[in-house]
Amino acid sequence: MDQNLYSAEGLAGVVFLGLLAATVAGALIAVNAKRLVRSVAGLSLCFTGVAGLYYFLNSPFVALMELLIYVGAVCVAIIFAVMLAEPRAEEKVGKSSGLGSLFGVIAGGLVFIGLATVSTKSHWSIAKTKINTGSVTELGSSLMTSYSMVFELISVVLLVAIIGALVLALPGRDKE
């Protein structure tokens, strides 16, 4: 590597490697932790790393949304659910069988090799002109025009989820 570590690119590279390490370490903690809450803590570390990677991909909006939604809302909601559940339920019960984890490693490795081959071997043609600036304004107007169908469908899914939660929660109120 001929780039100086103390140049701006070098520093950015160090930060990038740190984010990669955080993502992988977080994912490993999330999978291997014995206690569910620690898994979620690992998951939040992983999400933070991913948010940083998005920032490196020049999309700060997605990066900040990743933090706001995945770390700030999803992880918090998961921990909340864990806390409301039985206290014993948070410990991992039983050991996973050796054969199962072997297959898991093989399957995961195959997916990794496949994706890595695709991303390194295939020829990525770079668009001649920038499609848009990737700003929030562009994002908003395309969500409201070209992709409004998808947008509406997602809102229908959310509506169904809310109604489902209400239906599940309603009998609990009459019990007392």
């Binding site: 933090l67 706001l68 700030g72």
Partner: peptide, 8 residues
């Protein structure tokens, strides 16, 4: 975004 981490 950063304020939402505080609660975690």
């Amino acid at each position: 975004a950063f304020a939402s981490i505080n609660v975690l």
